[in-house]
Amino acid sequence: MMFVKNTLRLLSAAFVVAAAGSVHAADQAVLDEGKTLFNTDAKPMACALCHTLQDAGATGGIGPDLDELKPTREQVQKVMIEGMGAMPSFAATLDEDARNAIADYVVSAVN
């Protein structure tokens, strides 16, 4: 019986560690950079011009309301690279670190 309990504990601990490893956590400096890019510095245009995001004080009405949409990090990254509808691609104007900072910021702001 003790062997079974110990085995279950080990399996539970391994599951928690594996799950935690799949979650991306951004540090505050990255989130601050993402917020600045979202509000003013992204090129060809700042995200806040088109999107609503309460944390950023953004009330854009062209693109989706990100507070309602609650996109994943992967969704934000994909749309920033490929563009969608009226939204242009940012692949040529923002490097990967900048796109990741925006994605991290948006996800942290909507969750």
Score class of each variant (00 low, 15 high):
M1I: 03
V4C: 11
K5E: 15
K5S: 15
K5N: 15
N6H: 12
T7F: 08
L8Q: 01
R9W: 12
R9T: 12
L10W: 15
L10A: 14
L10Q: 12
L11H: 13
L11Y: 08
L11F: 10
S12F: 11
A13R: 13
F15S: 00
V16D: 05
V16M: 02
V17E: 03
A18H: 02
A18D: 04
A19F: 12
A20D: 03
A20W: 07
A20K: 04
A20V: 09
G21H: 08
G21S: 09
S22N: 11
V23A: 05
H24Y: 08
H24K: 13
H24R: 09
H24M: 03
A25H: 08
A26C: 06
D27Y: 13
Q28N: 03
Q28R: 14
Q28C: 02
A29L: 10
L31G: 00
L31Q: 12
L31D: 01
L31N: 05
D32I: 03
E33K: 11
E33N: 10
G34D: 08
G34W: 06
G34F: 03
T36F: 03
F38T: 06
F38W: 06
N39P: 01
N39D: 05
T40D: 14
T40I: 06
D41W: 10
D41Y: 02
A42C: 08
A42I: 08
K43A: 10
K43P: 08
M45T: 10
M45S: 14
A46W: 07
A46H: 12
C47I: 10
C47K: 01
C47L: 11
C47Y: 00
C47D: 08
A48P: 00
A48S: 12
L49H: 01
L49S: 06
C50T: 03
C50M: 00
T52V: 12
T52S: 15
L53H: 01
D55V: 02
A56Q: 01
A58E: 09
T59P: 06
I62G: 03
I62R: 11
I62M: 02
I62N: 05
G63V: 10
G63Q: 03
P64A: 13
D65A: 13
D65T: 06
D65Y: 00
E68Q: 14
E68V: 11
T72M: 04
T72R: 01
R73Y: 10
E74V: 07
Q75F: 09
V76C: 02
V76R: 05
Q77S: 15
Q77I: 15
V79K: 07
I81V: 15
I81C: 07
M84P: 06
M84F: 13
G85M: 05
M87R: 05
P88I: 09
P88C: 07
S89W: 01
F90N: 12
A91R: 14
A91H: 11
A91Q: 09
L94S: 09
L94E: 09
D95Q: 06
E96W: 01
E96R: 14
E96N: 12
E96C: 08
E96Q: 15
D97R: 04
D104S: 02
Y105S: 10
V106R: 14
V106L: 02
A109K: 05
N111Y: 13
N111P: 08
